[in-house]
Design a binder for these strands. Sequence first.
RNA 1: AGACCCAUGGUGUAAUGGUAGCACUGCACAUUUUGGUUGUGUAUGUCUAGGUUCGAGUCCUGGUGGGUCUACCA
Length: 558
Amino acid sequence: MEETEEIKSLNFIEQIIEKDLAEGKNEKRVHTRFPPEPNGYLHIGHAKSICLNGGLAKKYNGKFNLRFDDTNPETEDEEYVNSIRNDVKWLGFQWDGEYNASDYFQQLYDYAVQLIKLNKAFVCELTAEQMREYHGTAVTPGKDSPYRNRSVEENLALFERMKNGEFPDGKYLLRAKIDMASPNMHFRDPALYRIRKKHHYRTGDKWNIYPMYDFAHGLSDAIEGITHSICTLEFEVHRPLYEWINNTLNTTYRPQQIEMSRLNITYTVMSKRKLMQLVNEKHVSGWDDPRMPTVSGLRRRGYTPEAIRDFCERVGISKRENLIDVSLLEFSIREDLNKKAPRVMGVLNPLKVVITNYPEGQVEELEAVNNPEDESAGKRMVPFTKELYIEQEDFLEVPSKKWFRLAPGTEVRLRYAYFITCQEIIKDSEGKVVELRCTYDPASRGGNSPDGRKVKGTIHWVSAIKGISAEIRLYDRLFTTETPDKGDVDFKELINPNSLQVIKSVLEPSLAIAKAGESFQFERMGYFCVDKDSTEKNLVFNRTVSLKDTWAKIADKN
RNA sequence: AGACCCAUGGUGUAAUGGUAGCACUGCACAUUUUGGUUGUGUAUGUCUAGGUUCGAGUCCUGGUGGGUCUACCA
């Protein structure tokens, strides 16, 4: 046990933590946090962050906070807070403390006052356009604001009046006094507080000024005693400012910001802004549309927390740009569902089969295994009748040499039932095959012939009279290209028009009592779960993911 | 352009100066009452040029390529 742990390699963040621990840094504490802004639903990139931060706290016997980074009253909302809590919990993580940046508004204000007193901040009244002008560019230094040398007293008075709501939005701005010539743009007297007379979903109308991210985030981390503050790569250039603020204000705790790369997955987009657009412009049915890479969408699609955690583990932690093949996500869910999902038979696209030598009106209950991967799942009975449905794609009038399934004159096994042989094809006026006449071998009951005769193919089936109908929603990737948000065309033009296909199918009767959220493997077809739209009268299933289909690959090649 | 960051098979990630490994994907075979699962095998890799060293994916320098920043968003 001890040995295997030592063999397992550490990611770069774990290496930093173990070094800190070894050096006795932070009183040997590990305290992480997940700091979402409540302005959208969580996606699988957030899930990765939750798994990392929550997992690190668990691994190093530390603490893990959930903190809503609610410093922008214009975009944030309670609805998002609730969905975020729900998603984090569902993923299997329990936070030690739940906080809000808005809990610290008074402390943050006091810190700002302190900064003014240290002559490290000033009230500026340049307009946004003027600011841009004074800001300089990457190659040219900026210019000092003409308001930069106000007295401490004047700054204090102005800042207080900003707080008291004496000025309109945008009139004044509290800025740090650092260095307008710094090559790091974030050091060019960054904005700390802006006037925004907006109702905040938690603090109401109490505040007329709101702190900016750079000011609020590092201080919130310090206030909570966070030791390792993990964020994504785009905040790398903010780190000197993050440290400047905590060092200048001489906070008790000095959390360390560590940046890692974002998660990207092929054939989807992973930015809240773009996901929001898909929702608002009705390209999907909502944040929880099963095609969305949101936690709620994946959940509705039938993904399990275990599969998502496994995926987040597999993608790894690093600082390079990456693009994870969506097949890795599919691997994780297949692996989990393969162990757990009960097997059933469902015919997606039915083709009628009449067993000509089977007694009219007879119903036999045949025994079927619920899960070959899990003996404890037990067995069930499936009704067999003279008229059945099989999958349209399991019959081919002119088969290739590698075809194992049904064709004129060939024999196949009906799973858990009988060997049948196709004797006759019935077509409609357009030449489409609408019915098959087959004979069965009564001696092959259960699926084995006493004479040892072998069949190459086993296909699934459902009794035509005992089967139940259901709506099945088949999902495909939401976009037609691997990286819809790269390149010149607008990502919405790359939406896959066939990402949702709704069909009417027929399922074995045991599924009549399936509950919303339950997952099944429809043998040979894939994993399906009951959608929340499902009712007793109209069963609705989502296809979570198809099974690996070796035959489709062979067929594709020809 | 300036600052910062990154560079290992198709993809992702290990190797912490000493045999380039693992996973996904692909391909092949075996097993199979799911063309599923499982098992076995296999293909493909250290961006480049120098340097340090007995020895470099790892350290140093230059180049190249990619990313980020230049919001009163986070």
